[in-house]
């Protein structure tokens, strides 16, 4: 581990950061919470010898409510999401997912922007961001654009971010009160485990449990996080019952395209996806699933 080989730039404001990034572009590696990058540094598998430390850009530490949207600054950590009243009230699925990321120490350091920047198909904040219709703000010294999160990823570790761009903000849509939601993941242990499969779902059901609309996003089962589009269609306007729960879960397990890797086989992932979706929808059917309610007992 040769820490001395890295030059670290620690800009004090966004303009300064964008200026450095414009000049260095792909020669410099961004680092926020460091929970991915420090591991790469330890293993000596990062090619850039310069680091752009974003952790002093306090102007990117905010959670703003704007009408139907919640805007989250790039430096917001999982812990801050868990403590945020506005996120708990209006996007509780993101809180549930945050609580499963790593362990307490990782949630205190890691950021949403870092999860997006890392662009792992198993990134646990990503399926929730899909079903929350999130968008990613990319800023460079000369430009600014907003990309829907479902279009942001091009493949494992590949995104639409240009080398001179920073993710500065993530915007999510508020979930309407009364909607059902669940986030479920399967890893090889409770804490600090990379997901084998993860599922995020937001469902709008009428009082007789007929499905008005449903969003289902899955992680770690394709080159990028994906919507289970066919299964969503299959479910829409149908009466939720045990048969439909089984049918949707089966459809999801067929619709995904998992691979076999060190953590599990493709077949195992299909079965796990079936199981997680079945369990989640079963809870919706039985009325034990969580609903966006407006109640919050957190700290802030």
């Amino acid at each position: 581990m040769n820490y001395s080989q890295y030059v670290v730039h620690s800009p004090q404001n966004l303009n300064e950061a964008l200026g450095i990034l414009k000049e260095k572009a792909s020669e410099i590696r961004l680092i926020s919470g460091g929970t991915d990058v420090m591991v790469l540094i330890k293993d000596n598998i990062i090619k850039e010898k310069e680091l752009l430390n974003l952790s002093f850009l306090n102007e990117l530490r905010y959670i703003h409510e704007e009408g139907n949207t919640i805007k989250i600054g790039a430096l917001i950590t999982y812990k801050e999401l868990e403590k945020s009243k506005v996120v708990n009230l209006n996007a509780p699925i993101l809180v549930d997912a945050s609580k499963t990321i790593g362990a307490a120490q990782i949630q205190n350091l890691g950021t949403l922007a870092g999860n997006l920047g890392n662009a792992s198909p198993a990134g646990d904040s990503i399926p929730p961001l899909y079903v929350l219709n999130a968008s990613v703000k990319l800023q460079s010294a000369d430009s600014e654009r907003v990309v829907p999160v479902s279009e942001f990823f091009l493949g494992p570790r590949k995104t639409k971010r240009a080398p001179n761009e920073l993710i500065t903000e993530i915007a999510i849509e508020k979930t309407k009160p009364g909607l059902y939601y669940f986030f479920k993941k399967l890893g090889l242990r409770e804490a600090n485990a990379i997901s084998l499969v993860s599922v995020a779902c937001i469902a709008d059901l009428d009082q007789y449990k007929k499905v008005n609309s449903i969003k289902l996003a899955l992680g770690a089962v394709a080159p990028t996080v994906m919507f289970a589009v066919k299964s969503e269609k299959l479910a829409t306007d149908k009466q939720l019952d045990l048969n439909l729960v089984d049918e949707i879960a089966r459809s999801v397990s067929e619709e995904i395209s998992p691979i076999t890797d060190i953590r599990g086989s493709a077949e195992y992932r299909r079965r796990a996806a079936y199981g997680l979706v079945y369990e989640g929808l079963y809870e919706v059917l039985m009325g034990t699933a969580k609903r966006v309610s407006g109640s919050f007992e957190g700290v802030y």
């Binding site: 680092i31 919470g33 460091g34 420090m38 330890k42 307490a104 120490q105 990782i106 205190n108 350091l109």
Partner: peptide, 8 residues
């Protein structure tokens, strides 16, 4: 609580 091995 943070893991000090991940903090520069």
């Amino acid at each position: 609580a943070v893991t000090s091995c991940l903090v520069m």
